[in-house]
Design a protein around this nucleic acid. Structure first.
Lengths: 230, 230
DNA sequence: TCGTGTTAGATTGTCAACAATTTATAGCAA
DNA sequence: TTGCTATAAATTGTTGACAATCTAACACGA
């Protein structure tokens, strides 16, 4: 099972990112270097570089001499992430509407089918991941890689946020029908409809967050992270 | 002159970023680890981490076994950077217009004075940096740190782009009067005017770029970076 | 029992030596 | 001179050992 070619830092990065996107790594999870070395079969140097890359994407938090843990976005950050997504996705939709063609619509249609397939076959982890990737596919229609990469960061952040503050029973941050409606609006080149559907969709997700209760209940350390001992 | 406390990777990062913003480091410049170790008085480990951070911001390019060099954005990337800036700065302005108050206006006024002061005193490097930072100040009015951080990346990229493709005689990418006009429009809470001024400002800078000619003339390596030897 | 201080273990940070790769130099033949 | 090959120098990549720091367990006194 072990590949002959050893993993690179980007590979490790991608694996951890996937785990976050599929909610198999909860916010606040401690990532010890040694255990990851064993899991991925690489040296500490590689793990360390991966941590640095993930920190840049706000996926892990690094604390000096305390190592790495999966990030726990604060409510303020959560609010900013959603505001950013509305901003970015709306703007990208405006850029996209003129570039939509049969090929790009087909890409979205295929993706919708994949979403439904995953849901039907009970592969929840895969479905969660696909619902996030839908927004990436949408963003890429604008043809701006810089903005797409930025939205990717925001989607990952969203995954953490929903894991922290989202409805505990619901597994996903996205409703399948919403995605369907957006694609339909795009198909008829109705920018206003597509935009309002997308904005409503994002607001719907945000409205389901509950910041009130104790965050993790088992982690006082994080609960009092704001307290700074003189 | 040497600080007792050794520099951290972030410090090194900031220094290199500043050099880029002030155009003292040209795109394509090779950054050897050893020389930077000597300059900053740190070990290779720190420099290496700094490279990784700078790579994430698209400020340096890393090539395996060939080390790091200041990034040279392609014309396509340049176009995307400007499109992204128009997108982001326009959206942030919409967010800002409702939050503008006396304090924030004063911040911008003070900055405009600094710009003029630097220009008057002939401190061109400082002026160049300040013209870039103006857009950062503007962005921060929206109160969204995530978007501000993203725009910061774009501003740094712009600095590289203008250094590569900008008018060789003009030292800066921003006109002082344009900034003045934008602040005035904000002062009278005229969103449409402020937006159109800002968009025009960005388009003006972009229109002055010339992608045709040889890029750096002294760096064939970068000129043929697209050629991949099998 | 609870809180405090101390010690042992585990984890991270740093550095220097070594290995692998690339780049520059020198020599030689056409 | 040009082109090629082989050697030498320089630069980057990796590993392992050691130092610094944090965490957890434990003993002790109130």
């Amino acid at each position: 099972m072990a590949n002959a070619a050893p993993m690179t830092d980007e590979d490790v990065c991608a694996h951890i990112r996937d785990s976050v996107l599929e909610r198999r790594l909860a916010p606040g999870t401690k990532l010890t270097e040694e255990s990851l070395c064993a899991i991925f079969g690489v040296g500490r140097t590689t793990i360390r570089r991966a941590f640095l890359l993930l920190k840049r994407d706000n996926i892990v938090e690094l604390h000096r001499n305390r190592g790495a843990m999966i990030a726990s976005p604060s409510p303020e950050e959560a609010q900013q992430v959603f505001e950013s997504r509305r901003l970015v996705e709306k703007a990208l939709l405006e850029q996209s509407i003129g570039k939509i063609n049969a090929v790009s619509l087909e890409t979205l249609e295929v993706h919708l089918k994949e979403e439904q397939g995953a849901l039907a076959s009970g592969n929840i982890a895969r479905w969660i991941r696909l619902t996030g990737e839908f927004h990436m596919h949408l963003a890429r229609q604008a043809g701006n890689e810089i903005m797409s990469a930025f939205l990717e960061q925001l989607v990952f952040q969203t995954s953490l946020i929903v894991a922290l503050y989202g409805p505990s029973n619901s597994g996903s941050n996205c409703n399948g029908d919403d995605h369907r409606n957006i694609v339909d609006a795009l198909k008829s080149k109705d920018l206003d409809s597509a935009t309002s559907q997308l904005m409503h969709h994002l607001q719907e997700i945000e409205s389901q967050l509950t910041f009130g209760g104790p965050q993790a209940a088992d982690d006082l350390q994080a609960a009092f992270a704001n307290v700074r001992t003189a």
